[in-house]
Design a protein around this nucleic acid. Structure first.
Length: 962
RNA sequence: GGGCUUGUAGCUCAGCUGGUUAGAGCGCGCGCUUGAUAAGCGUGAGGUCGUAAGUUCAAAUCUUACCAGGCCCA
């Protein structure tokens, strides 16, 4: 033959596209963001979908006090994918992002700044302080908005909501007034951690634990009433680390374990017990007690169990005390407490409901009456007769006289058995470092179990009903929030703080009643409309009260409302307000981390049930938390933190989005370098599929289109798959099952397209004449694949799908994949019989590829085009395969199908019966253009290296596609 | 300590109401291709289903305990 073979590369239609293989996302994504901004994508979306059925995902507001972390990214990405997919399913899905701006963490930041400047918060005018808090929140709101948008989140970023706007503050107040109107708001008391130095309550996070030396006491409480003979004339022994709480004692708690009744037979040196005393203590603490109390010898009279103690009533050790005017003459009953342990003490816990959490709860459970005993300055109040005015802690934080006075009184009463100093961990103020006390304070509550006049139901009942009417995703969320609502106490909505919305009420100084005058409340709310909540601090009380009342007769309430009440009211000042006319209430969906069963879902549910009688949402979806690759919590000290900003810069936001959707977000999600790399690989498959399609569609025009009926079976099978995939992923999107959707899409790209359809059609695409029916059919179908795939991927890979879309349709600024809806799939594409047939074809093909692999290992062949498989199958299968070009399907140059019995050495697969393959070399020479090995090559004098097809194609090259 | 919850190949996930040798994709090894080429195709090796008991003819799937996580409380 000729020496120099002709190079036919230029006559082959190789894929051509400007869409690069490498994403370069960190650089590309900001460009696309700027483009969306320029073209006002969000505005176009809204305009385009006006009038459609609405889907309202109401944003739960993040707290504006720092950069976003990976958990924020997870949350916002998930919301964005849901919004985008609903939009593309044909809904109008407007999204208004929001921020939670009031609250303690921001106050702390400003206080911290003051401390650094040597200033004291209390010396700063409150309006100035609030202004600084506002500026701080505003700053972080701006930062977070940037960071969220970088993730590709589309929404009304120009008009977000926040809890600190005037309109929001005014509406929050109006929501509170609704609870005044419906009678659920009441004033009660609650024990809090109190600093007598700062005269303020402290939140959990403001408390530091340091060692502190406390005087501990063992004290007798004489039994005065009991059904248990063994306890007649005996005393119950309690142990306390806070002697000053003894005057506030109202009960004694016992546990579920054995108690001994002991008779003192002998007192050791220094002991103050008396011979003949009969004392009850927990059995396994009795030895320690006997030793501490310096009791020489005891005899055990009896052992009692939990049930023996239920009916016991003691007297307070100060009963009948001179100078107390009978103040202590009440009964001290015994109650079971599940918090009682035998770690230390006597197994009996003295209960002062005003001075401890467990104490308060037990008191509430048994409706124990009690007084406030200690004032905000740390002194006993006047009602504590005989002790009034004594300091528990002095204003300088030092121990006051109260302990000493109590100990002396106990000694006088003969009730003290022992005392001892111990060093233990004790709560202190983070500011003054002074020790704290538990103290009841007046607070505002929303009642859970009072009937609302309008409905005749309690808030708890209404909330529980609403839970049943809400769709919970995953379903287990319902159990969780139901349990919480069933068991929660009344909602304490007041805080003694500065940065928030004041509970703007007036309380009558003489009656203690809340002023419920509509005119006054309206004036206050109007002032909030005009000036925000600052009005409450800036304007004189008389201005609100008008001419009907005198400011001197009322106490103006300066407590602020719990921030959970604020965010629980977002449905009112965002969805219902009319400020965003796109929105409506109730929301279709609330979506947050599973911690919000206790937080935002919970407070929104209660707020809305109390004011509107139903939940503000139809569905609630929760996601898990982000952990590192080992499933551990992320922390700076472990060095396992993945920051979204870093992922954006290294991989791109599309990879982060892919990570969210490829994970099972209903559980906790893991993230780290390996998982990101994996998602990078996953991404490449999607990107390359789009890229191959773009390359294959180079120069495609409508003139090339082929009617479905005229297409080869392979193309019609692909259309069937499009139909199938479309149905599957629409169902997935509706059910928020994006993991399954992504898997379906990935398998489609991977298994159906890349490894099967594209692999087979490469030959036709590259080498057939441009006007051939086969090639035109392939391009017609590939156009459909592209149009579907790009749109299917758009909610998840919002940047890449757009990039591909523009590469195909031009970057006219009105153009965007995000303005598309999922294209309709003609029902005619579905062909179950064809699908069944092609499933069988692919099964036989697997045996062929297996045989080719063995031939390759035997060095018999290299590329599949060198091979000519002899395929031995049953008559039935021959019928299946006879009207398709099975050589083409297996990417071989030629192939023989035969129904003969297979030779001994034929290749077969265990799971595919009656199919065996023997691989031979294809006969003939390699066509230099299409690389098929065919006997005909050499028969054309003018082109001795070409097969018939290629000769024809080259001869008619003028008709080649561009 | 309590409530809810999770634990299947290196990774991300399927495995419904218990029933043949536990699946997929990725990654990894090997081979092919060099006309999707920092790509494509084929193929192979990976799991005592957290551990231990129990129920059952039969358990990843049911029960109990334990271990290791997570969220929310205390």
């Amino acid at each position: 033959m000729t020496d120099a073979k002709k190079d036919y590369r230029d006559t082959v239609f190789l894929p051509q596209t400007a869409f690069p293989m490498q994403g370069g996302l960190p650089k590309k994504e900001p460009e696309l963001l700027a483009r969306w901004q320029r073209m006002d994508l969000h505005g176009k979306l809204r305009g385009q979908s006006a009038g459609r059925e609405k889907f309202i995902l109401h944003d739960g507001p993040p707290y504006a006090n720092g950069n976003i972390h990976i958990g924020h990214a997870l949350n916002k990405i998930l919301k964005d994918v849901i919004n985008r997919s609903r939009q593309m399913m044909g809904f109008d899905a407007p999204y208004v992002p929001g921020w939670d701006c009031h609250g303690l963490p921001i106050e702390w930041k400003i206080e911290e700044k003051y401390r650094a400047e040597g200033k004291d918060k209390d010396g700063v005018p409150i309006l100035q302080f609030r202004a600084e808090c506002r500026a701080f929140a505003e700053h972080w709101k701006t930062v977070q908005a940037e960071e969220f948008q970088r993730l590709g989140v589309v929404g009304d970023w120009a008009h977000p909501y926040s809890t600190m706007t005037k309109a929001a503050e005014a509406q929050i107040l109006r929501e509170m007034y609704k609870f005044v109107d419906n009678g659920l708001l009441y004033k009660g008391v609650k024990p809090v951690m109190w600093s007598v130095v700062e005269k303020t309550a402290l939140a959990e996070a403001e408390i530091e634990y340091h060692d502190h030396t406390s005087t501990t006491l063992w004290v007798k409480f004489p039994v005065v009433k009991t059904a248990c003979k063994e306890l007649e004339g005996a005393s119950v022994v309690i142990w306390t680390t806070t002697p000053w709480t003894i005057p506030a004692n109202r009960a004694i708690a016992y546990g579920d374990f054995a108690y001994s009744v002991l008779r003192v037979e002998e007192v050791a040196e220094g002991g103050i017990a008396k011979v003949g005393d009969v004392l009850a203590v927990a059995e396994n603490l009795q030895d320690a007690f006997v030793q501490e109390a310096k009791i020489g010898r005891v005899s055990k009279l009896a052992v009692l169990a939990k049930d023996d103690l239920g009916s016991v009533v003691c007297a307070h050790p100060f009963r009948g005390r001179a100078g107390s005017d009978g103040y202590f003459d009440y009964d001290v009953p015994l109650y079971f407490g599940d918090f009682v342990t035998t770690d230390a003490g006597t197994g009996f816990v003295h209960i002062a409901p005003g001075h401890g959490e467990d104490d308060f709860n037990l008191g509430r459970k048994h409706k124990i009456k009690f007084d406030e005993t200690v004032g905000d300055d740390g002194r006993y109040l006047p009602n504590v007769k005989g002790f009034e005015g004594l300091y528990v802690y002095k204003p300088d934080g030092k121990v006051g006289e109260a302990n000493g006075a109590v100990i002396k009184a106990l000694l006088d009463a003969g009730a003290l058995l022992a005392k001892k100093n111990i060093k233990h961990s004790y709560p202190h103020s983070w500011r003054s470092k002074a020790p704290l006390i538990f103290r009841t304070t007046p607070q505002w509550f929303i009642a859970m179990d009072e009937k609302i006049a309008a409905t005749g139901k309690t808030l708890r009942e209404t909330a529980l009903e609403s839970i049943g009417q809400t769709g919970w995703y995953p379903g287990i969320g319902e159990n969780r929030i139901r349990g919480m609502i069933e068991s929660r106490p009344d909602w304490c909505i007041s805080r003694q703080r500065a940065w928030g919305v004041p509970i703007a009420l007036f309380v009558d100084k003489t009656t203690g009643d809340v002023l419920r005058d509509k005119a006054v409340m309206n004036r206050i709310a109007a002032a909030f409309d005009a000036d925000g909540a600052d009005a409450w601090y800036a304007r004189p009380a008389q201005e609100f009260l008008g001419n009907d009342y005198r400011a001197d007769d009322f106490i103006q309430v300066f407590d602020i409302v719990d921030v959970w009440f604020e965010s629980g009211s977002t449905h009112a000042f965002v969805l219902e307000s009319g400020v965003w006319p796109n929105l409506q209430s109730p929301a279709s969906l609330y979506l947050e981390g599973s911690d919000q069963h206790r937080g935002w879902f919970h407070s929104s549910l209660l707020e809305s049930c109390g004011t509107r009688g139903r939940a503000p949402f139809d569905k609630v979806l929760t996601h898990g938390f982000t952990l590192d690759e080992q499933g551990r919590k992320m922390s700076k000290s472990l060095g396992n933190v993945t920051a979204p900003q870093e992922v954006n810069d290294k991989w791109g936001a599309d990879i982060l989005r892919l990570w969210v959707l490829s994970s099972d977000y209903s559980e906790d999600l893991r993230i780290g370098p390996e998982i990101l790399k994996q998602n990078g690989d996953l991404y490449r498959r999607f990107r390359n599929t789009l890229r191959y399609l773009l390359g294959a569609l180079n120069g495609m025009s409508d003139a090339e289109h082929v009617a479905v009926a005229d297409m080869p079976e392979l193309e019609r099978w692909v259309l069937h798959r499009l139909h199938e995939v479309d149905a599957s992923i629409r169902a997935d999107m509706a059910a928020f099952d994006f993991g399954h959707m992504l898997q379906t899409l990935h398998n489609f790209c991977n298994t159906d397209l890349s490894a099967f359809y594209f692999d087979i059609r490469k030959d036709s695409l590259y080498c057939d004449r441009a006007d051939s029916l086969r090639r035109r059919s392939a391009r017609t179908v590939m156009e459909q694949i592209f149009n579907h795939l790009a749109v299917w991927l758009a909610p998840v890979l919002c940047f890449t799908a757009e990039e591909a879309w523009l590469a195909r349709f031009g970057d006219d600024e009105n153009n965007s994949v995000h303005l598309q809806t999922f294209p309709a799939v003609p029902a005619a594409w579905r062909d179950d019989a064809l699908a069944h047939k092609w499933a069988e074809i692919r099964a036989v093909r697997r045996v062929v590829t297996g045989a080719l692999e063995r031939a390759r290992n035997d060095k018999k062949i290299g590329a599949p085009l060198q091979a000519h498989p002899h395929v031995y199958v049953s008559d039935r299968v021959i019928v299946t395969l006879q009207d398709v070009d099975f050589a083409e399907i297996c990417v071989n140059s030629s192939l023989t199908l035969q129904a003969d019995p297979a030779p001994e050495n034929a290749f077969s697969l265990p799971d595919i019966a009656n199919v065996s393959v023997v691989v031979e070399l294809a006969e003939g020479r390699k066509c230099e253009r299409c690389w098929q090995v065919l006997p005909e090559v050499g028969s054309h004098k003018d082109a001795p290296d070409l097969c018939h097809r290629c000769h024809d194609a080259v001869t008619h090259s003028g008709q080649a596609a561009a």
